[in-house]
Write a protein that binds this DNA or RNA. Structure first.
Lengths: 354, 354
DNA sequence: TGCGAGATTTAAAACGTTTTCATGATTCGA
DNA sequence: TCGAATCATGAAAACGTTTTAAATCTCGCA
């Protein structure tokens, strides 16, 4: 932008430079225009003449002007801020960071800033939403881990407050979302296990509350039913369970009769823990059992043997969410344009699907 | 706080409730006081009489008043915001999220909000700092991955802008920081390897630029020199390298003569990649080689066999950084009180040191 | 009775924008 | 040539708070 090292070089009458932050008034004094005009010129109002606009721009750049967000905010009521509700569970494997990175990319070049409200300790998610909307802390909200009857979605819909979720709900009022097609993911992943000759796939599902857990399960069930094979949904653990717990559960399951011979894992840590648990039992990936997992980072490239994965690009998801939210804020009222279902890319190594 | 479902129950003369956001003026009208008085009462100014203060509080709670941050900001110049500069590299294993969670904890109950400025794409770190300070987007800044002559630290020191770093610098002007004692960590970890009978520990160091890499290396070198044993600092990779690269490098190293027999890993992904690389070569942890790693999450609990680790509590670090920054903003000028060096907890399994 | 000293309260200005409404130029149609 | 329309600019109010300076009130005391 403006180079602060460049000498300012303006020999004005008396308005010698106080070294305070330049404001519209500063520019007005230098150019001899009114504050109003300067404001208009900088915001590209149509009624300002071309040359005035150019001159104002010049001076603004020269003295390194940038508008006071607080003042703008006070006057317009707009905050120019997009809030992201961050959940402690999202700590795992850079989930939050990937999403945020994507959102940041979408906000790049707009007037919007990304602000993260971690609701780590204090309140429930709904309370956080209450607080943010009541205090006008953002113009829009983004959050994840939606539940079928998500109270946050309900609240925000009622308020008419712009938001986008990562994940769908089952509420009757449609709302903007970006979601990964976890049904297809689970369906294809499970089919892949079956195609490799496995006859009793196990699912490690998502936490019960969340919408996507149902999708995973549905995809899994569809595949096993089509194949007519046995299956198991591992009880007692889910994708949020700590790695150690998953490892223990696997070990325990193999002490019982009729264990599964393959696993559909919705996450990498989960896959890793499963492998370790199986290894505890003396079983080797690719020999005695198989795994297909969802991949959101490069963690699994570190382990041996290679796990088959289907990739979910969380940064892209974040970017989509950012874009959708900006559209919503911009006044797009056709909700169907604000709902994105991202399709899993099935690796060619999986062979032709049906 | 105030229960919005509770019926408001005030039958005022004519000032019937417009359903707009309550402001100081609203309270002033209800109580019959002046806006000034209300403002003072709410901020516990000493010259307001006890009963007025109480009355104002009551009304404020009742109508669910909360001050307009934008207006406060405009008037006072304070933003009540703490900014965290987030680096893309911090994506790994929830580093950023842990830190942020800690900061959030420290900010809990204060007037401060946490805002994260991811500088993922656009600018260099210094530019981001420039931008934030110039635009007055925060009252204080927190960031990580300091370099010995960190330009961000230099800039902020010159500006007199409050900040805390995660990690020290080697600049002559002292500044607030919170750091983990990586020298001691590396020293103890390496000693542990030697105590287990290893005779050629290898170090996978941090990225060359960062201060803590030097500390790691210093601790490592001190231990091997004391023991008079051979050592190696693995070239071509560092803690930021992707897991696959580390794995490849390990494999490659073992194709050459005189390989190391143990590893000091500054991170968990690194340890995991090392194990996999060694496993590729047919070598087993605890038999042919040992590892001691720094642990910041629970990832390694998922793998087998258990890696010996020394824990670094990043959430606690974040909390410390938050606290220190608040002190700094609060006017604490004794820098020595704003510098924290956190000591590694050496597990008792390591046996008596020395 | 009056007067200054607290003790409380208040009016008004200010922060830097945006916005509403008005103004001074210029041009145009009749 | 004159009023109307168009164009470019400006004055002033407003957003909700904090702060400075001033006003009012209540006493105690001479």
């Amino acid at each position: 932008m403006a180079d602060p090292s460049k000498p300012a070089h303006h020999e004005d009458s008396g308005a010698a430079a106080k070294r305070s932050k330049p404001t519209l008034r500063t520019i007005a004094e230098i150019t001899g225009l009114a504050v109003t005009t300067v404001s208009r010129a900088l915001s590209d109002a149509p009624q300002i003449s071309i040359e005035t606009r150019k001159r104002v721009r010049e001076v603004a750049d020269q003295i390194g002007y940038s508008p006071d967000r607080a003042a703008q905010r006070l006057k317009t009521g707009r905050t120019n801020v997009i809030g992201v509700l961050l959940d402690p569970h999202e700590e795992i494997l850079g989930y939050g960071t990937s999403i945020m990175s994507g959102i940041a990319k979408a906000l790049q070049g707009t007037a919007y800033h990304l602000i993260v409200m971690p609701n780590f300790l204090n309140s429930t998610n709904v309370q956080a939403v209450h607080y943010i909307t009541r205090n006008g802390m953002a113009d829009g909200l983004i959050f994840s881990r939606t539940e079928p009857l998500d109270p946050r979605v309900r609240l925000l819909s009622d308020l008419g407050f712009p938001f986008v979720t990562h994940g769908r709900t089952e509420l009757s009022t449609p709302h903007p979302y970006v979601d990964y097609d976890n049904f297809t993911f689970a369906y294809q992943a499970t089919k892949r296990l079956i195609a490799k000759g496995r006859r009793k796939p196990a699912l490690i599902s998502g936490p019960a509350d969340f919408t996507f857990s149902g999708h995973l399960q549905h995809g899994f069930m569809t595949a096993v039913r089509e194949a007519g094979c046995a299956y198991e949904i591992l009880s007692g653990i889910d994708l949020d369970s700590p790695a150690g717990a998953i490892r223990d559960r696997i070990r325990q399951r193999y002490a019982e009769p009729d264990p599964p011979d393959s696993f559909m894992c919705g996450g990498e840590v989960c896959a890793l823990a499963t492998i370790t648990g199986m290894s505890d039992c003396g079983l080797t990936l690719g020999r005695e059992y198989d795994i297909v997992a969802k991949q959101t980072s490069h963690l699994l490239s570190a382990i041996q043997p290679q796990v088959e994965t289907i990739y979910e690009d969380l940064t892209a998801t974040g970017e989509d969410m950012g874009r959708v939210l900006l559209q919503k804020i911009g006044g797009e009222s056709d909700v169907s344009k604000l709902q994105l279902l991202l399709c899993p890319q099935i690796p060619s190594s999986f062979g032709a699907a049906d």
